[in-house]
């Protein structure tokens, strides 16, 4: 029982992080209809930039939490303006291929520039070690990362559902034509939303830096899990990404605890099961099916 509880808490902690990482993917798809394959590469860039800030400017974890998302926001804006916007009107496959190409390019450039060995990073002061909650132990940093991620997810959700800007953005995505007719400048919102989604990926990278290997390949495996999460949650659904993030975290932890090497396969078994029962995902819009 203690062990089950321990795995559950670890799963939830990992899940919070997954939710945040998948959130940007969900936001970008929800608003632009773009399946952003480069999300893993942006996550990697977030972690790499954190490590470089530390090495060259002695800027640690806390400043990086602010600086990196800002940098990544502008990276996103640049990519959207230069490339993504031209393909928006075409079949979504084109932007999928574009972001796939960008991923290959980014990963190889980073490899060339910084090699393949992992970069150094430190656990921020005060967040090292672990705490005991009754009979179970948890890494303080993992708890922090999960709590931080949940707060960000909540803020994004509130921002999109309860604020005027959020409503405009949602209206623009629901029905771009009518929104335009009502005098809403749809195009004005598309670019910042893309940048925002990329910033979220960068933020996940900063959170990952203290407890994961920081190298050019770190996003390649991660993006696969992120796709599983958004498929389970329903593409474009923010609530779906969050719930599925936690689900995947739990499944992975139980897998690691009870079925060892099956832990990653179980995630895809879950995905297959969800898609069989609800093709649009847990919170996806059923109009699709």
């Amino acid at each position: 029982m203690t062990q089950f509880l321990q795995y559950t808490l670890q799963g939830l902690a990992a899940g919070g992080f997954y939710a945040l990482a998948a959130l940007g993917l969900a936001v970008i798809f929800g608003v632009l209809g773009v399946v952003n394959f480069s999300h893993g590469a942006c996550y990697m860039l977030g972690a790499m930039i954190s490590a470089l800030l530390l090495e060259h400017f002695s800027l640690g974890f806390w400043p990086a939490l602010v600086i990196v998302p800002v940098i990544m926001f502008f990276v996103g804006v640049l990519v959207e303006r230069l490339l993504v916007q031209w393909l928006l009107r075409l079949d979504p496959l084109y932007n999928f291929l574009l972001t796939f190409g960008l991923t290959l390019l980014t990963v190889d450039i980073m490899k060339r520039q910084f090699g393949v060995s992992s970069l150094k990073y430190e656990v921020p002061a005060g967040l090292g070690g672990r705490i005991s909650l009754g009979s179970v132990d948890l890494s303080i940093y993992q708890l922090f990362a999960a709590a931080f991620a949940v707060v960000i997810c909540l803020l994004v959700w509130v921002g999109l559902t309860k604020t005027r800007v959020g409503m405009i953005v949602r209206a623009a995505t629901e029905d771009a034509e009518r929104s335009r007719a009502l005098g809403i400048n749809v195009a004005r919102w598309v670019t910042p939303v893309f940048g925002f989604g990329i910033a979220l990926a960068g933020l996940a990278g900063v959170l990952a830096a203290p407890y994961r290997a920081i190298n050019a390949d770190m996003g390649s495996n991660f993006i696969i899990i992120l796709f599983a999460i958004v498929v389970i949650g329903g593409l474009g659904s923010i609530l779906g990404a969050v719930v599925a993030g936690f689900l995947v975290g739990l499944v992975e932890a139980y897998g690691q605890g009870y079925y060892g090497q099956l832990s990653q396969v179980l995630i895809f078994v879950l995905m297959a099961a969800v898609v069989l029962v609800r093709p649009a995902g847990l919170f996806g819009r059923e109009e699709a099916a």
Partner: peptide, 19 residues
């Protein structure tokens, strides 16, 4: 329709991780 296509596309990407 677009959603269904994208979901199958994303699912395909996700599954490729197993190979």
């Amino acid at each position: 329709m677009r959603h269904t296509r994208m979901i199958s596309l994303a699912a395909l990407v996700a599954s490729s991780g197993l190979v």
